[in-house]
Design a protein around this nucleic acid. Sequence first.
DNA 1: GACGATACGGAGCCATCGTTCCGGTTGTCA
DNA 2: TGACAACCGGAACGATGGCTCCGTATCGTC
Lengths: 181, 181
Amino acid sequence: MEKTGLRADARRNRAKVLAAAEEAFAAEGLAVPLDDIARLAGVGAGTVYRHFPSKEALFQAVVLERIDQFAEEARALAAADDPGEVFFDYFVRVIKQASLNRALCDALTESTGTGFKADAGDEFRVAFAVLLERAQAAGAVRADIDGDDLRALIVGCLAVERYAPGSRHLVRVVVDGLRTP
Amino acid sequence: MEKTGLRADARRNRAKVLAAAEEAFAAEGLAVPLDDIARLAGVGAGTVYRHFPSKEALFQAVVLERIDQFAEEARALAAADDPGEVFFDYFVRVIKQASLNRALCDALTESTGTGFKADAGDEFRVAFAVLLERAQAAGAVRADIDGDDLRALIVGCLAVERYAPGSRHLVRVVVDGLRTP
DNA sequence: GACGATACGGAGCCATCGTTCCGGTTGTCA
DNA sequence: TGACAACCGGAACGATGGCTCCGTATCGTC
């Protein structure tokens, strides 16, 4: 995370860029102009490019960490009691968090692999799949669903949330649909 | 639809533009460059703008007709037997059709009103709401859902379909979630 | 045919945005 | 403190795409 071997001002600027990018991407998603991020960070566009080869790379730097947090959380729950409840709680929490953060939203939605699938996003998928399988084994979740399906359903829920913000009961429709019939 | 009082060549070009726009929007959605539509129609960009004040207006001209068809279909089913089955069949059909047509997809998804909400899109929403209410009255669909919720769920299903094309059983998750618990 | 109105095409304008370049500045180390 | 390398800001470039403008072509009518 903290790049060493940089000059002091460079290290400071890098941190400012990351903070600004986190805020701007969270608010407006990948669509935010890079110049806005630079202005928010109080640096020039050139400085951003000195630290990150492209806007996409900056985006990933900001977002991968967050997605890894999700994966970590999922791993921590992998041995918990009541796999059904754990699974649904986690599912709802991920959607809630992501719907508050356009960056996460865009990262999860982006299908045409920017590398999330092969990269750390993979850890998330695997960890989530474990929760799913445990919930299925416990008979709480229907069996005709796999990890990829789950990801697609998350994307769908995010679209719902974006279209009709704050309608909590719509996610419940999906959750109920996931229960064993 | 057919503008009268136009010169013969103008009428012909207008039709060519509409046909090209229908094809291009269906394939690539609102994102297709207007120049592509003009080229596909075999006319210049200026000609497109002589007939439609903006790209957005052309898009609506293409799409509203299609959405009206949906509304018409819904009205025709409003008195059918077995409201539950009718409702779910219709729901699935709309999603299937729209997922094959990026123009419909974008039109339904677009929340920041381009006028669809107030315009003919309203007829669709009303007609669909009638089917929903009948299905609810028959006890086939959960009661804590209204027409707007339904629209949001359609948007969600379209996102799922876009992310994981062809996974029919995911729509079934939503359908099952809509059934009376 | 000839002539005026109508319509056409596509070059060009303007705005946006990712990215690069370079003259000037600043940190670091002797 | 001096000097060099590292770094900075922001102007400029190139690509994209919506939209306009105007010289030219075509249509409809007499």
